[in-house]
Simulated scan of single mutants.
Amino acid sequence: MVSSKKFDTLAIHAGQDFDPTTGAVIPPIYQTSTYVQDGIGGLRSGYEYSRGGNPTRTALELQIAALEGGAHGLSFSSGLAAEDAILRAVLAPGDHVVLGNDAYGGTFRLVDRVNGAWGIRNTTVDQADLAAVESAIMAETKILWIETPSNPLMKVSDIAALAEIGHRAGTLVVVDNTFASPALQRPLAHGADVVVHSTTKYLGGHSDVIGGALVIDDDELHEKVRFIQFAVGAVSAPMEAFLTIRGIKTLALRMERHSRNAQAIAEHLAGHPAVETVYYPGLATHPGHELAARQMSGFGGMLSLAMRGGEVAARTFSEATRLFQLAESLGGVESLLNYPSEMTHASVRGTELEVPANIVRLSVGIEDVEDLIADLDQALSRV
């Protein structure tokens, strides 16, 4: 095992011991469903069935835990599967969850509609307002769910302050770290109990894999969630685990470029006559800029625009880019554009989380930034 605690080294080596049989530098993909036993109950490698454990998935879980600075990593078939596992492990009918009022639409749907039918209640609140968060927590609150930066309005929440509020009330504090990635932000170091990722995004990094992960420090909670992982079965398949491992090895380099490109684009668009507001924590005008600078090592590759011409302008712009491809998801090497109100956040229409119709979300890739700016300018000229 690697002894270094430096992020770039961990990303390449944590959980990635060479194959002891052949000496292969890259651990093999264990594309198997089951394992031979040396007699009944005699596991020669600790593995018996790949729903319960697979060496390729173990390598990924060790890698992600190391990057987040946590004791335990758990890898799932999607980000929402990871979220579902922690909710199942912690909640019972009658319990309550506090979420931000700019949470990802899929998270809200899972908590409100899927778990709501099971008797779970929730409250959404502006998590920048610490007093409002404290007021929203009640005796039945079991989870304080934080997403920072948030999707899609890029709100920045104070993890340490919220963790203190949550722990004072005896509430588990979960942070969705998908937008920042552990390359830019490590919530456990700020007091969070659990970190959740859609590894589909920046960790995988190439828009070719679906996955999710949890990182947990508490041994007892880890055992509860691992039981859910095994019993429900929404685990990473070996190939998906391998692709995510491969993506993580270049995470630090990619996040530097994502952040640099997004900063340049945000600064360029901040004064554009067609753009009313640029939501990017790297801008000094962003209300969460100073907080982001304290708890993040970079501002990331995500930004959103409020178009001055309203819904018509947002739609026209969204369909006029060439390099920025109109698609769901984010965090890949290529630049993507999303119209949240009808794409990623359609499920929250009619709620406090409804995304304004003039919002466009950009996932800034690692292409040449001058080409990206030229593409945005030509699209804006059509608005």
Rank of each mutant, 00 (worst) to 15 (best):
D112W: 14
I64A: 05
M302L: 14
G41F: 04
E140H: 12
S50C: 03
A327L: 07
E134S: 05
W145Q: 01
H272W: 13
R121A: 15
L337P: 01
T171P: 02
L87I: 08
L362V: 05
E367Q: 10
E290Y: 09
T34H: 12
A266V: 05
I120D: 00
D375W: 06
Y47Q: 07
T250F: 07
L99D: 01
S3K: 15
D38K: 15
R308I: 03
H167W: 02
D217T: 04
F227G: 11
R315K: 14
H345L: 00
S75E: 03
F227C: 13
H258I: 10
L291E: 11
E220V: 15
A139Q: 12
H272D: 15
F7H: 13
R246C: 03
Y279M: 15
A131L: 05
D368T: 08
A82W: 09
S329M: 07
F7R: 10
G212A: 12
G191W: 12
L269S: 02
G70L: 07
V348N: 03
A313E: 03
A11F: 07
G288A: 11
V174T: 14
Q185I: 00
L188H: 15
I40G: 09
G100E: 01
G350F: 00
D8W: 09
K142N: 06
T178K: 09
R294D: 02
V369D: 02
L214C: 08
E370F: 14
A71K: 15
G39V: 05
I29R: 12
I373D: 02
Q37I: 03
A274T: 05
V156M: 14
I359W: 09
G247H: 06
R109F: 11
L110M: 14
G119D: 08
L336P: 00
V364P: 03
L326K: 10
N261V: 05
L188R: 11
R226H: 13
N101T: 04
G298T: 06
A14V: 00
I120N: 05
I86V: 15
N54T: 13
G205M: 05
A163L: 03
I12P: 00
Q229N: 05
I12R: 11
E367C: 01
E334A: 06
R186Q: 11
A293V: 05
R260A: 14
A293C: 08
P273M: 15
P182V: 13
G365P: 01
